[in-house]
Amino acid sequence: MNATIGRLLLTRLVAAILTLWFVATVVFVITNLLPGDVAQELLGQSATPEAVAGLRKALGLDLPPWQRYLEWLWKMVQGDAGRSLVNGSPVAALIGSRLGNSLILAGITALVAVPVALVLGITAAVHRGSVYDRVVGAGTVLAVSVPEFLVASAAVLVFAVQLRWVPALSQLGRLETVLDVVRTFALPVLTLTFVIVAQMARMTRAALVDVLSSSYIEMARLKGAGQARIVVWHALPNAIGPIANAIAFSLSFLLGGVIIVETIFNYPGIAKLMVDGVSTRDLPLVQACAMLFCGAYLLLVTMADVAAILANPRLRHR
């Protein structure tokens, strides 16, 4: 670790925090530009003006926008996301009860998807131009072109309806045996993996093809190095940055993917919570979920940046 790397890492961290703040501002502005009046909408057209005014005061809607913004931001920083407009319970508690489920789903998917994608991407790059490469290429184009719910419904149709291996809906709570776990997570994980493996394999392949066409790889070949040595010793160390970027970027697709998957499998995670929040226009809940997802995305992107900085020999050895 040297001063340059330290400074770069610090810059990335500061940039991430500033971006998060910017995102928070955007989310606040959008959710407060609402043409209607939240209090009026909640109470319905028949409500008395007094009742509406009372709710407005209770929600803090009588304050000027910038004051509401600062208050909201300050509470967000402290982890207080307010109360749900629909059932009045604290948003933090709602999210807390669901967050674990989503993390488990995302974690299992990442564990399955990353190795599969890396193997596909690397082998395709190494055998660039071969039939195998073209099959992988065509397969991944198909996979990224297909909506997640097609994959999910096809999976349900095949594995739940036709083969009856797994239940069509995921119900947590009956996780007594390993088989239960597999049966519960199989379809959601399969669907998510399908979607992100394609993205990740494509980007990994592109990164490695780039490195493999550089002069020092040709030089290694002309020194008599074998294929394995060229890939492992020469190419991969130089592809770490781009590959880390590919992984992080693809994992961020998970964030979008879980929204569909949790809905279709009725999985009790926060994405489902958010979709329900949007349907009921429960803005505090939507704001909090959005911030959580954006935070996760920024975390991934920042981690990829950090990996790229740490893997860069020009920065590491000055």
């Binding site: 020092y216 030089m219 008599g224 160390p237 020999p313």
Partner: peptide, 24 residues
């Protein structure tokens, strides 16, 4: 060919900067 290259016959390229692996 692998046995030949680097042992019997060696190569010096145009751009040394590009022909050395930056990570090693």
């Amino acid at each position: 060919l692998q046995q030949l290259r680097g042992q019997k016959i060696a190569y010096i390229a145009q751009s040394a900067a590009a022909s050395f692996n930056p990570s090693r």
